[in-house]
Amino acid sequence: MTEITAKPLPRLDGPEAPFWAGLREGEIRVQHCVACGTPRFPASRFCPECHSDRAEWRAVEPRGEVESHCTFHKCYFPGFVGDMPYTVIQVRLDCGLRFFSNIADGGRPATGQRVAAVFEPATADVVLLKFAPEDGA
């Protein structure tokens, strides 16, 4: 049985493919409803606000605020052994969308802290969305 030492990777060929392509190009690209303009993430066929099925992918401002965090002391993934303990954050971008992520370079987050996106290459095909404190705070 092979040992898994790599970190888990996202699926690139599913409905989020344009999101992952956007990260590779240094943008946070999400669906916007053509009818009412509301952005949404994760991808879905219908707008949860107005139920329109017409959407287009556009970039949003890559800035926001840390809304919550938790720090893993128990190592569930062998690929994270070198990062223990590590912190997961929930970020709300200024456009209102939420993402789970990490502080790039493993810094300590604080709820309410302003952050900006960092586009972190993980493999040849995958760039992950991470965040760093704005103004290097």
Binding site: M1, T2, I4, L9, P10, R11, L12, D13
Partner: peptide, 10 residues
């Protein structure tokens, strides 16, 4: 992600 882990094993 394609393929299933361990798929080549007995």
């Amino acid at each position: 992600m394609t393929g299933i882990e361990g798929q080549d094993l007995l």
